[in-house]
Each structure stands twice: as C-alpha cells, then as structure tokens.
Design a protein around this nucleic acid. Structure first.
Lengths: 351, 351
DNA sequence: TTTGGCACTCCCACTCCACGAGTGCCAAAC
DNA sequence: GTTTGGCACTCGTGGAGTGGGAGTGCCAAA
C-alpha cells in the first residue's frame, strides 16, 4: 500500500499543492506551483514530480489539461505529516472562553454554546455529543403522584443533572406513601454510580423477595421502572448546518441532501464520533474514508472532551474536505479543552 | 384591489390551471388547459380568459412564449374559494394515530413524533411548537444541595412537566435546611398556576419583609431565582428539513440557505406561527405574503392544537408554495386534533 | 537531473441556428 | 357578442461548431 517514502522535495511540493488548492479551490498546475514554491524549479521539473505523486495516488487530474487536485490519500498524508498548524487567534479564544463561561450555569446550555461557537468560528457545522453520565452518582430519588395512575419519578445526580419520567402504574399512590419510598431509596442508593444502581437493586430484591416487606418491594419496582425509562439515548447537538448550504465544493444537491438526512438521523454520525474513542487528541475523518457515504466530500474533525479527567463526550466540526485544517484543528482542540474545563468547575485551573 | 368578481368559467379555468401547475410543475398553456377542462373550449377562447386573469394579477407568464403560472394572489384565491379538499387516506390516519398513541407517555416524545409524522406524510418539513405551560399548576418544589455553592431547584407541575435549574447561591445549604424550604413552599404554592406564583411570592415577601423570619425569606428568594431561571424560551421542533433540499421549485441555493438559517434561528418562524392565534382552524401563509423573506417560494400550513380545551401550541408544515394543498391541509388539521387528544388523556373520547 | 520546446488534449465560453411551444391579434363564423 | 381558426411573432432550449487558454506528456539538449 504505502509506496517508497517521498523525498523531501516531493513532500514540499505536495504540501504547497494542497495548501494552494485549499485556499483557491481550483486545480493547481505546474506553472502556478513553480512560482509559489521556494526552491525555484521550472514547471517541467515540477511536472515530473507531479507525475510521480499521481502514480502514488496522492493527487489526481480531473481531466487531461487541468491542474492537479489532492486525493483523499493526499489529504491524509498532508494532514498526518506535512500540516503546520496556525496559532490560534487570541481574540477568538477570548470570545470562546467568554461565551462558555457565560453558559456554564447549565450543562445543556454549555453544550449548545460550544456547538454554536464551533460553527460560528469555522463557518461550518458544529457538533457536540451530550455527555455520558455513566459515572455520575445518584444523589436523590423523588416520586410525585400525578393524576390518572401515573407517577413522576425524578432522579437527581450529584452534578445537578436531572432525569425524569412519567411512569404508568397499576394503582394510585398517595403523596405520603411515595415520600416514604423516596426516603427509603435515597438512603439506600445515594452516592452510588447510576450504572451500579441496577445491580444494587437486584441484590436488594433478592433479599426481600420471600419477605412480606411489600413497601420495600414496591419501592424497588418503581425505581427499576424509572431507571429503565430514564436511560436516555445519547444525543447530539448540531449547529450551523446552514453554513454548508451552497458551499460550492460540497458537490451536487443529491449529495447535500444525503448529508442533511444524516444530520437528522444523528445515529450514524454519533457512531462515527464514537470511533475516535481510541485516540486522545483530535481525530480527522476525510471524505467517505470511514466507509460512511453521506460524508463524501466532507471531513469531520473531532476531539473527545473530559469531565473530571474522564472522556464523557465528543465534539467536532463537519465541513468540506477542502477546509483550512491548519485553523480548524487547533480550534476544535481548544474548544474541547475549554468545554471540559467549564464542565469540571473544581478543576478550572486546568487551563 | 379586488377587481370585479370572476365569472364561473374563469374561476373554473383558474382552478384547473393551478391544479395542473401544482401537479406538473410546468407553466400551463392554453392548449393544455383546453384539453384538461370539462367545457370544451378552444385554446383561443382560453387565451382570452387567461389574458383577463393575468390582468387581474392572478396568473403570470414567466416569458412571452411560456404558459401561465399562478401568482401569490392566484394561489390565495384558489385556496380560499376554489380548493376542494381530498379526503384523508385512512391508512395514513391509522398510522398517525398509532404512532402518537405509542409516544403518548412523554410530552416531549409526543411533540417530536407529531413533527416527524408531519414531515413524513407530506414529504416536506414538519413543525411543532412546545406547548405553553402557563396554565399548568405547580405541584411541588424541591431544592437539592450540590457541591460548590450551588443548589438545584426542581419545579414539578401537576401534569408531570418538570423544570429544573442550577442556582448559584451565596453560601452552602444543607440538605435538611433545603427540605424545610421545600415543605414550606410546597404547602404555600402547590396547586397554583405557575404564572400566578410570582404574584403570590411578591405578596408574601411584603408580609415577611420587616419580619425576622429569615427562613421564609430565604425560601422565597430561592424560589424567585428558580422561577426566573425556569421560564424557558418557547421552542420549536422541526423535522424533515432534508426533504426540502433539492426540491426543484425551491429556487436557488441562496434562497435555500436563508430558509435553513431561519430553521436554525427558529425565532422568526415561532413568531409567524403565533400569528395564527387569531384563527381557530388551519391557516395558510403563502410565500413571502407575511413580509417574512426567507419563506419566499414556500408556504406554511399551520394549525393550533389544544390541551384541555385551551390552545397551547401550533403545528404545521413548510413546503414549496407549489404543494398539494388538498392533501396537506386536511393532514395538518387532523394532526392538530390528534395531538391535542393525545395530550389530554382524560378527553380522549374527543375523537 | 533539470530544462525548454512542442504537439496534443480537453474544458469553457461563445455564437449560431433550428425547433417548438405558446402568445396576441384579427377577421370570420356562430 | 362570443367563439374560433389562422397567422405572425417572441422567446427559451438544446445541439453543433468554434477559438482560446490552460495544462499536460514527452523528448532532446544542457
């Protein structure tokens, strides 16, 4: 697969070509490149090199008498080895910081702000997954009676996250009865990780099965129902989709339609983001590289973000494959850090 | 403005023309119309009538030798006076019913399902506003201590709606202290309409101002903070936006971009929906009729939906102005009714 | 190994043209 | 007075043809 390593000159020429193509959006010819490059080589020499690069599948000519355009493999090599990052615009970082700080009172708001910032600062689409709450600790359970054989269950996590759900039940419960259950269970379960609660419940259930302690039994049943109902789908906040409408290099309408369908489904994009689990830093998916069709012509720049030192979600940017990676990558990186910091107030000194 | 009323024949011709244009999407000529119309008139006669219709601003020729296309005024007349509704497809109604029933356990789910159904059944974009909860009654207030001088306030409404918010506070509160406040306030406020609670609080505050009853004072202050924070923006759920991508008669990309920006902003569309407050039934906004630019080329079919006999929100469809009104209008109508029924379980017999 | 030269290819924008659909108008027919 | 057929006219559409320009590959000379 990987051919003999490129020599220095070929690398520099590829770099110049990709940069030029990204900034201009037009196939790059040998003449152009000979002017834009530091070693003064004649167009003819450059043509020879370009022929090699094409043979290696790094660049490609749309037609005989056009310049060259990077292939996906070319972009990949460029990003992995040749890209020199731009330093972040300080005013942008300040802006980002400020907006996140302002939104830091609510988790939901924080996520939405981060997504909007990503789209606003890149002029592409911003994505942020909602944080996984597996490791949050249960702090309190409340049951509230509703009319018509329904009970409202409220699970409060120690970080202020609240999940609630209406449970259909088989008989009416009084408020005071439910308060008893709440007290009973809060005592039993408070401080446990939500993911552990189920086990504890099962164990507890075993204990009381033969028992005639129906009170405890009902309490446990209610809680199980609540847990079942309250485990939410992982979700995704997308902003600035409209930025992608009418970008000339997003290709034809049919492709754009598929992309927007993917935005609505969310599922596949979430799945893709999860793949960046392995890596710690910024990950880049180019075009349909990952076998995911709707992203053809697009790239996804993604990074995990942390809370209390644990990866809880991902954020990123979707834009055309021909995007200024040198600006976008650092931006995604810093946004992930800042969001993490904003979500872990005790560790705010981290940055 | 409104010229002498059209005679029967002109009306029928206009009707035929609009129907034809909606189904074919191509300017309609006199020859075509003469074949498609019951009274057998020659093309020449029809041309005379069409000249009249054009003079009245009801139809319009894109260029000299093209057929005619309805103007906005033409569509308006068609919809108000000439349109014959199609009866609903029974299998569609069944489907709709089933999906809504399945989602009826959660309000949020119900809204999302309704929106998706609208977009799925029309193949355009579906909109549903979140229900206004002004008249919901407060059922319970809870405060939960969090780390770092933060308190979580939870407002539970009697219909199972829960609003919660993290409040930054000036000192740490203990759980037992907060429980006292909860009890105090729930007693005081439970059963009141949320919109009234603020008044009550103000009155109460007056009473205790000079008093040294700091407990009550703090409780009131916390509640006020919670109320301030918990009044959510009215929001809008949009589905099937991608259905509008690449619809040939949505015009150019720039227009589509504006439309998608409007979808992201939501505010203006919400505002527009609110205008249908006056009317009880289905309302139709054609193109930029309402002076709202981004909808140029589109129409909005909207209807209010009810809960317990009160209008609490709106739903509708956005599609190209050239849409099959005879199918979409009844669909929006029935969806509004079904959603209302699903949200008012006690009145389920309504349908 | 690099370079200049040269023939070649292909896209793009432009023009020209024929065709067809549809119109407006007029005079004849009903 | 209304309806109709006829006719000249207009205009968009699509295909063919054309010249220019950009860029290439290859070759022979430096």
């Amino acid at each position: 697969m990987s051919l003999p390593p490129l020599n220095e000159r070929a690398q520099q020429l590829l770099k110049a070509l990709v940069e030029r193509y990204i900034s201009e959006g037009v196939p790059v010819g040998s003449r152009t490149l000979s002017q834009a490059t530091p070693f003064s080589l004649s167009p003819a020499t450059i043509r020879n090199v370009m022929a090699d690069l094409e043979a290696m599948g790094l660049i490609h000519a749309p037609h005989t008498s056009a310049g060259r355009v990077p292939t996906i493999r070319g972009y990949r090599l460029f990003i992995n080895q040749l890209l020199t990052m731009r330093s972040l615009d300080e005013s942008q970082v300040d802006f980002l910081c400020g907006e996140l700080r302002q939104a830091s009172s609510s988790r939901q708001q924080l996520i939405e702000t981060a997504s909007q910032m990503l789209s606003h600062l890149t002029r592409f689409a911003g994505l942020v997954t909602l944080p996984r709450r597996e490791h949050a600790r249960l702090s309190q359970i409340e049951f509230v009676p509703l009319s018509g054989r329904r009970v409202l269950a409220i699970l409060v996590m120690d970080d202020g996250e609240v999940q609630n759900r209406v449970l259909p039940v088989s008989r009416d419960y009084s408020g005071s009865e439910l308060r008893k259950y709440s007290a009973l269970l809060s005592e039993q379960l408070a401080g446990q990780e939500a993911s552990r609660v189920r086990e504890t419940l099962l164990a507890e259930m075993d204990k009381v099965r033969s028992d005639l302690n129906t009170l405890m039994r009902e309490a446990i049943q209610l809680t199980e129902q609540a847990l079942d109902a309250a485990t939410p789908e992982p979700d995704l906040v997308i902003s600035g989709q409209s930025n992608l409408v009418g970008l000339e290099d997003m290709g034809n309408l049919a492709r754009m339609k598929r992309l927007f369908e993917a935005f609505e489904t969310k599922r596949d994009i979430l799945h893709l983001l999860d793949q960046s689990e392995r890596a710690e830093g910024v990950q880049i998916f180019i075009g349909g590289e990952s076998g995911y069709d709707p992203l053809e012509g697009c790239s996804l720049i993604a990074a995990p973000y942390h809370e209390q030192g644990r990866v809880v979600g991902y954020l990123g940017v979707i834009g055309p494959t021909r995007m200024p990676y040198d600006r976008v990558i650092p931006l995604v990186d810093i946004t992930a850090r800042l969001l993490g910091a904003a979500m872990s107030p005790t560790l705010e000194s981290e940055l």
